[in-house]
Simulated assay, not measured.
Amino acid sequence: MDFKDYYQALGVERSASEDEVRKAYRKLARKYHPDVSKEPDAEVRMREVNEAYDVLRDKEKRSAYDALADRVAQGYGAGAQAGGFQPPPGWDEGFEFHQRSGRGGPADDAEFSEFFSSLFGQAQRRGAARQNFRARGEDHHAAIEISLEDALKGAEREITLRAMELDAQGQPQFVPRTLQVKIPPGVGPGQYIRLAGQGMPGHGGEPAGDLYLEVRIAPHKLYRVEGRDLYMTLPVTPSEAALGAQAKVPTPAGGVVEVSVPKNARNGLKLRLKGRGLAGKTPGDLYLLIDIVLPPADSDAVRQAYEALASASARFDPRSHLGV
């Protein structure tokens, strides 16, 4: 058995692109096709061209063939020139070959050479055996970002994902697909929405796997999500913080509540509104973080008020703990 140079058979360089390989095949097919060719060896040459194209148009076969050709160039199979070439055991490990039939192009693999059969025949028989394998399809996972409002109230949204699917030859490829997703009310970050049957197809008539969408909540202009709890900054004036006050606050679910700011409230003090967070068996809470905001001294009245405050609190030293 001789080692076959498939690149030479198509008249292309090893660096040839897929498009160049395809063009070379079509040119030779027009020249040697037995139905139209007047060449005396047309049938033999057409078989060689078909065989070379079957290998070089397939990424897995071509990669495996190139790796084998490199070993031959390094001196492996010295008997190749004398017709004694044999592929090394395990030469095709790490490659998965798919048999192409009836796809427009090379003839049936049974018409190919002994060299081709020794390289790819057994591997393709393994692929054919896998086609009879029965198993449920694999589950898929993806992330979905939703608004806080959708998480609170629930919604139905259309999403587009790049999903892995198998093509006609059983090769995985990414294709876009659009799905309708029902978002249940109260869903929180890190939870999953399950779409039954939207994973990878099953094998041998078994059902497809499921698609699990991990929920992420988009940043909100007012609220921050931590688990099932929500946090909101509540700005107050110095006088409200010192003397206490009533403040109106918007709630995540809509509407307004009035909260009491206690006297002598400090920056960062947390006020808890029970059950105003994300819904659930145990609803989350809404926490209001006090943020004391100083009025700008941009008028005589405000400056005089600050001066009066400074005079009245002259004995108050906020830096006494520094020891200087």
Rank of each mutant, 00 (worst) to 15 (best):
K182D: 15
K182V: 10
K182S: 15
K182F: 11
I183M: 05
I183Q: 05
P184Q: 11
P185F: 06
P185N: 10
G186P: 10
V187I: 15
P189F: 02
Q191P: 12
Y192S: 09
I193E: 06
R194Y: 08
R194A: 09
R194F: 03
L195K: 08
L195E: 06
G199I: 15
G199L: 13
G199N: 14
M200D: 13
M200Y: 09
G202Q: 10
H203G: 02
H203K: 12
G205K: 13
G205S: 05
P207L: 08
P207E: 07
L211H: 11
L211D: 07
Y212E: 04
L213Q: 12
V215A: 01
V215R: 00
R216L: 07
R216Y: 08
P219N: 11
P219E: 14
P219Q: 13
K221P: 04
L222C: 01
R224A: 06
V225K: 12
V225N: 05
E226F: 06
G227L: 09
R228T: 12
L234R: 13
P235D: 14
P235N: 09
P238R: 13
S239Y: 07
S239G: 08
S239I: 07
A241E: 00
A242E: 15
A242R: 15
A242D: 14
L243G: 15
L243T: 14
A245P: 07
A245C: 02
A247K: 02
K248G: 04
V249I: 11
V249L: 01
V249Y: 00
T251I: 13
P252A: 10
P252M: 13
A253H: 10
A253I: 09
G254L: 07
G255D: 04
V257A: 04
K263H: 04
K263L: 02
N264A: 11
N264M: 11
G268F: 03
G268S: 03
G268I: 00
G268Y: 04
G268E: 04
L269T: 09
K270E: 09
L271C: 02
